[in-house]
């Protein structure tokens, strides 16, 4: 198991290095970082000095090395647009995005798994059929359209929920949370549903098909033949066996949620990193874009690692690999 973890860590590091290189390449080869800092009337000798100070003319491996070292310390340079340090801009907005993503993921899991279990246990009931049809529509609707529809229904027609912003936030050190105020909680409902709906349909469909698959297996038939109650068969035996693929997809989707937050944050003017990224794309603010890329890459890699670890918790076959022969 240790060997497995080490192998995964090395892989993760390689992926991060690749992402960092793409990000570095964007940073270095698009536009001239110096030209973006200096004004038009900056004297030539000052520019030369700045070039030296920034190390722009060093050999590429050196610059890449410096980029990685700086990145690990959270130093990503200055935004072209606001000339603020990119690291701080992102750190300021990260809590908003993480809270939104987390609430959306919890919503997707909390609703998607039971719905999928139900649809898998009773595939022929009208409720299951309805859920499947609606979920197909859910998959076809672009996220931003769902957001607009929700705003129209709950903010415009019914007027019960806010259509933009985060509501009041409370600061804990560097972390600002909207989850502790009434207005903050109200503000997160629509964005979280918008963001989570697609993942919800995905998780529901996945759990349903896995559940139907598992229910056909011999060990479920044998569990029934042993006279176990429906509850023990369905939730004790069947559900646990559907978890491995569900964990995989959910893990990957969690990363996707953070990326998809770009859209939701735009629709609801949610002050998170997604909105920041969008603005940086519009203004070709390369440092922010490349930093965002590194951040997303990091999130994906971490989630993948966690998913791999969870396999060990769920599936004993992996845990004991290497000493299976002991059973003979």
């Amino acid at each position: 198991m240790i060997a497995f973890i080490v192998r995964r860590l090395v892989q993760a590091a390689l992926v991060m290095l690749a992402v960092a290189f793409v990000s570095f390449a964007m940073f270095n080869f698009i536009g001239d970082p110096v030209a973006n800092i200096v004004g038009q009337d900056t004297p030539a000798d000052q520019i030369v000095e700045l070039r030296k100070a920034l190390g722009v003319d060093d050999p590429m491996p050196v610059r890449f090395g410096r980029f990685v070292v700086n990145a690990m310390q959270g130093k990503f340079g200055l935004s072209y647009r606001t000339t603020e340090p990119v690291g701080r801009m992102i750190a300021d907005r990260l809590p908003a995005t993480l809270e939104l993503s987390l609430v959306a993921a919890i919503f997707a899991l909390a609703a998607g798994i039971p719905m999928g279990v139900f649809a898998g246990l009773y595939p022929n009931s009208w409720l299951s059929r309805m859920m499947m049809t609606v979920s197909l529509i859910g998959i076809s609707l672009p996220t931003f359209l769902i957001g607009i529809l929700l705003i129209y229904i709950f903010a415009v027609i019914l007027g019960i929920l806010p259509s933009f912003g985060r509501g009041e936030t409370i600061k804990f050190g560097f972390w600002s949370t909207g989850l502790l105020t009434v207005s903050g909680l109200k503000a997160i409902i629509l964005p979280a549903i918008t963001l989570g709906l697609f993942q919800l349909t995905l998780i529901m469909r996945l759990v349903r098909s896995e559940m139907m698959e598992v229910l056909r297996t011999d060990y479920i038939k044998f569990a029934r033949a042993r006279g176990l109650s429906n509850r023990a068969v369905h939730f004790g035996h069947a559900l646990k066996n559907t978890l491995v693929p569900v964990i995989t997809i959910t893990g990957l989707q969690l990363g996707a949620i953070i990326a998809f937050a770009i859209i939701t944050e735009t629709v609801f003017s949610w002050p998170g990193v997604g909105l920041l990224f969008l603005q940086s794309v519009v203004y070709a603010d390369i440092p922010v874009m490349s930093t965002y890329l590194v951040m997303i890459g990091f999130v994906f890699v971490v989630i993948n690692l966690i998913v791999d670890m969870l396999y060990f918790v769920v599936d004993p076959r992996l845990r004991t690999q290497g000493r299976t022969s002991g059973g003979k």
Partner: peptide, 15 residues
Amino acid sequence: GAIFQDPLTSLNPLY
């Protein structure tokens, strides 16, 4: 009681 054909698949692998 019942015994099925394939002992490899009759037992739940996760318990």
